[in-house]
């Protein structure tokens, strides 16, 4: 069972976002970086599936700056076997990222490619399906359950308030929704072992971004809060305001 997991280094979800002077990106001063949470779930699931199969390999891959080596090492410490690092300092759109990832993993011969459903910065939820399109593989995004039975994967996902159970011919691409797996903390043994695991740098494929970010702003500020008393009269006042002033009920 050979599984490729695509991951992205992103700013911590606890970050208080400030806009950079260029007006098109966020101010990275003092910001902590993490592996995008859904990508971390994908790494965990891949390790579990490999271990359940009893053999195989988990290859983690990222497109990102030199510093993203840290996140790759963390994935290796969790239990991934080797890493591919497409070293690229530029900001790419989803199309460009998917193209670079596709070029990097084309030769790996994966039975399965896992991604997080979305990176928690651009929130596009696009790279997984785009990668599938480029690799000519079937894709099921937003899965919260995944098992392998021979050459077929059984996936579960929530869609339009229903739960779908799908069977998918491998190789295929899946993207991780919350609930797929709970990422483990790497132990000391894992961290030591990770230092010796192969981490290969790959030159980025030439793939232009098709979308340009022309500005980035903080969301519009909300008006002042109206305090409502926790009484029956207060509730009446609230409901009246929601209907007459806000027209939402």
């Amino acid at each position: 069972m050979k599984i490729v997991v695509c991951m992205k280094r992103v700013v911590d979800t606890e970050t208080r976002v400030k806009i950079a002077p260029d007006g098109r990106s966020i101010d990275l001063g003092g910001v902590q970086f993490i592996t995008a949470p859904y990508d971390e779930m994908a790494v965990e699931k891949a390790i579990q599936l490999r271990d359940a199969a009893g053999s195989g390999e988990v290859v983690v891959v990222t497109v990102g700056p030199e510093a993203a080596t840290k996140e790759l090492r963390t994935a290796l410490a969790m239990g991934a076997d080797r890493a591919l690092h497409v070293v690229d300092e530029s900001a790419r759109d989803a199309s460009s990222t998917a193209a670079a990832l596709a070029a990097a993993i084309e030769g790996v011969g994966a039975d399965m490619v896992l991604c997080g459903k979305q990176a928690t910065d651009d929130d596009d939820a696009a790279v997984g399906p785009m990668l599938a399109a480029r690799l000519g593989l079937p894709c099921v995004a937003f899965v919260d359950g995944l098992d392998v039975d021979g050459g077929t994967a059984k996936a579960r996902r929530e869609i339009d308030g229903e739960v779908e159970h799908l069977s998918v011919t491998l190789p295929a691409v899946f993207t991780a929704q919350k609930g797929l797996a709970e990422a483990r903390y790497p132990g000391l043994k894992g961290i030591m072992a990770a230092k010796k695991k192969p981490l290969e740098n790959v030159a980025p494929a030439d793939a232009p971004s098709l979308v340009e970010t022309t500005s980035l702003e903080l969301p519009p500020a909300r008006g002042a809060m109206v305090a409502i008393e926790p009484t029956a009269a207060g509730m009446q006042q609230l409901l009246t305001a929601l209907r007459n002033d806000k027209k939402v009920i």
Partner: peptide
């Protein structure tokens, strides 16, 4: 973007 912490024009 960033789950609504910022709004981008693309």
């Amino acid at each position: 973007k960033y789950a609504g912490k910022a709004h981008a024009t693309l």
